[in-house]
Design a protein around this nucleic acid. Structure first.
Lengths: 181, 181
DNA sequence: ACCTGAACACCGTTCAAGT
DNA sequence: ACCTGAACACCGTTCAAGT
């Protein structure tokens, strides 16, 4: 968002964009907010970034790679949200606090959440995405406190499932939070 | 799959197909099995069904309507699976048995499951799909037995979340079933 | 009623250049 | 290095016909 870093020396300048990669990710994220992942188009993202329909290939192998970068940013946001919840929660309420933060993320980042766990992007093909996802998941695992693996997995599943149901509009946020404990 | 019903009088006959709608849904389901929902294409489904790329519009308003029909079939299958689990489970283990069946459905119908709960199809726009989904969900609600609404929702969330995690390959089937209780 | 063929506006992706 | 323009093969969707 800032123009202070490297490359963009004249305003309106498209050639030697300087931050095209991030501009494309941001554009894609905006397109995604509309709710329809099919609307995230390489050509439209390029248009929003002010470059030719072909410039994105300098930074991304293809459309799916751009979506993977968006999803990876989503997982980083999720990790931050979970970490913040940890800091605000008493140790004995950790599972609960993490669950709440997970569900809140799903509603406040609805379209990101669906992309992160949807089928548009095959995570196995995008190491950067896998790493970001692992970052969020392992925080969950490590931070859950004195519970056995099965209890942690069950708590994860519950938060994850309620988050999906809320994000899909099948359950209200209040009901989901109320069901957490 | 049967040719005995209405219309297909000569083999190889495409004109007055007789069962084009179902043929298209079946074709779409086959395409979906590949794992990539983008591969489900109106034109390719028409090709598989042996009709022109335009014939599907006689039965579906567009691509999304075809996907909605596929998802609706998925929900009917899910409902059947849940009903079968109910019949096989002692009353005091109902929540558990339903959860197991839910997770099993997700792994045996991986791509259907992801379509049913993914973002390709906006359920709100397809009443037939909403009805099929409600059929499965209300079976869950009604059959759960002597539990309060919050406990039923939590159990649904847990099964749903674990099912997603298994379908996405983030958790093994054994671990998910083990976490159920 | 049900189906076809041509046409339009889009996409992802590749290639040969340009600065 | 980074970007452009032309080109290709695909799509969804619409329209005017055909039987």
């Amino acid at each position: 968002v800032s123009t202070s870093k490297s490359g963009v020396s004249r305003r309106g300048e498209a050639y030697h964009h300087g931050n095209l990669r991030q501009a494309l990710v941001t554009a894609a994220r905006d397109l995604l907010k509309g709710g329809d992942p099919a609307a995230v188009t390489l050509r439209e993202a390029a248009r929003l970034a002010g470059v030719s329909h072909n410039a994105p290939y300098r930074h991304f192998a293809g459309r799916e790679a751009l979506l993977a970068a968006v999803a990876a940013e989503g997982f980083e946001d999720l990790r931050r949200g979970l970490a913040a919840a940890l800091a605000d929660t008493k140790p004995e309420r950790r599972l609960n606090g993490l669950g709440q933060a997970y569900i809140r993320f799903a509603v406040t980042h609805r379209s990101d959440f669906r992309l992160m766990f949807g089928s548009e992007v095959r995570a196995a093909l995008h190491p950067e995405l896998q790493e970001a996802a692992l970052g969020a998941f392992s925080l969950l695992r490590d931070a859950a406190g004195p519970h056995d693996a099965s209890a942690v997995l069950r708590a994860w599943g519950t938060a994850h499932g309620l988050a999906h149901l809320v994000a899909n509009g099948q359950v209200s946020l209040e009901a989901a939070l109320g069901a957490l404990d």
